[in-house]
Amino acid sequence: MGEVMTGAYLGESAIWVEVLSRHGDVVSRQRFTSTPIAIGRAYDNDVVVDDPHVAAHHLRIVRSDEGVLTAEDLGSRNGLYLGRGRDKRSEVALDGDHDLSIGATMLRVRTASFAVPEEQLVIRGLRFWPAAITCIAGVFLLAALDLWLSDTTEPKAIRYFTPLLIIAGIVVVWTTGWSVITRVFRGHARFGLHFLIVAAGMLAFSFYDQAAEMGAFAFSWTALTTTSYLIAWILLGAVVFAHLLAINPSRKPIKLGIAILIAAAGISMQTLRQGEFRSNYGQPVVLSRLEPPALRLVSPQHDAAFFVDASKLRASLDKERTEEPAGGDVFSEDSDD
């Protein structure tokens, strides 16, 4: 049958049949030099697949007169599919790029001439640990500094110890979790890389948080602190994205989607909670922490200008008042102000 082949397909063109795991890893790989190749659950096949959803004689791979490899369904109940497609095929022309699906098993058929991508460079001596430890030291340092600078009562070691211990605990649990997941999917834990990702994320937030607090005072821009939770959630999304890529670099769009979803969900939840808290407790939104006068960078407003700005709040108060007037009495709306 294959004796009249022409062109590139002439000669010894070995065929590799690979059985894949659900995640695309090769479970087994067999080399053939001639077609047809019979695939099924029965032991008289060339490739035996232990999958209860695969027929005894499920699939046959043949080479056409033109030299094209084709997979033919042998009339199985579960049929033949291309990759994760939904259309049942009776036969599929094989190009080496697309997987076949029979029963619950994925197969890949490639010829010896299949062009593999270029090898990836090995980066020798890449060490995540030193960077991670530097980052986490930075986090601890900033946290301790923040605690010290806001400590206005009798200094006590426990006040520093507890928050630092909590940070350490979170880092260990978080990193271990991601390492276990990576170990399951990838075979090795990459603890150092995950440690670096979370440490870098925390360091970025610590820096931002401190800068925002001082900036809010220096530029008299309270919104910097009241919105710092936005940055916190965005950073968390970025950290999760990095962790997911560390597991393996495939499916970037889906992973990016997950990261964005986490950030968006967190931000909306916290925004709603803040709104709820504000409407239930009537707390004013003002700068929560002053800094030494020397940190002020804006030039002060003239007192007259300050009161002009203050007078502008009246409109929004009146608006809120008319939007939700005192309850319980129909007459309250009649006021002719």
Binding site: S299, P300, H302, F306, K312
Partner: peptide
Amino acid sequence: ECHEDFIE
């Protein structure tokens, strides 16, 4: 509703 700033 609040307004805050430095005053001279």
